[in-house]
Every structure is written in structure tokens, then in C-alpha cells.
């Protein structure tokens, strides 16, 4: 399912909003989540899980082909920890 499929599904279930309204809401949800992660904040959605940014320290790496030593800079990665309810439902 894609974002447009999600918007479609949610639109079918609500009365007070047009599909366009739902689209704006869905876009705003993921925009504000992205902004929160960019700021380094943690996101906690009850029943779904939590998102945070993990920082990987700079380290020395090696080019496997040439054996040359290279510096790998500090890197941040978005990380999602699935919540208990969601985890159990997927495996149900």
C-alpha cells in the first residue's frame, strides 16, 4: 500500500473530511514527524512504536578493494522500534 492508498482507505472511513483534506492531514503527519527527527526529537506513537535518530560515531574504514584506509564521518540514521501492540498484531 502506498501513501495514496492510505489516503483512500482513511477517506472511506471519515465523514467530515474530503479526500483532499485527508491528504493534507496525512502529509502534515509525516512532515511534522520528519521535522521532529531532524531536530533530534524522539517520536512516540502509542500502539505503533517510536522513532528516534541514532548517531554512528566517525570511524576508520578500509576500501576492501585497495586496502586503503579511509575516514568514515559521523552519520545519523532514523530508527524505528516497533511497539508491543503492532508487533503482536503483525505476528498474529
Amino acid at each position: 500500500m502506498t501513501k495514496s492508498g492510505l489516503i483512500e482507505k482513511v477517506s472511506e472511513k471519515v465523514k467530515n473530511f474530503t479526500k483532499r483534506d485527508v491528504e493534507i492531514i496525512v502529509d502534515t503527519i509525516f512532515d511534522s514527524m520528519t521535522n521532529s527527527l531532524v531536530k533530534g526529537d524522539k517520536i512516540e506513537i502509542r500502539g505503533l512504536g517510536s522513532f528516534k535518530v541514532k548517531e554512528h560515531k566517525a570511524r576508520k574504514g578500509r576500501n576492501p578493494k585497495t586496502g586503503e584506509s579511509i575516514d568514515i564521518p559521523t552519520k545519523k540514521t532514523p530508527f524505528f522500534k516497533v511497539g508491543k501492540e503492532f508487533k503482536e498484531r503483525v505476528n498474529g
Binding site: 500500500m1 492510505l6 482507505k9 482513511v10 472511513k13 471519515v14 473530511f17 485527508v22 492531514i25 496525512v26 503527519i29 506513537i45 500502539g47 505503533l48 501492540e85 503492532f86 498484531r89 503483525v90 498474529g92
Partner: peptide, 16 residues
Amino acid sequence: TEVVELVFETIKETAE
């Protein structure tokens, strides 16, 4: 709030 709940519920339902 209702729509936001539905968005997350629909994601869970789909994955389920």
C-alpha cells in the same frame, strides 16, 4: 484526532 488515529490504525491493519 480521529483522522490521525485512523491513519496509524490503517497502517497497522495493512501490515497485519
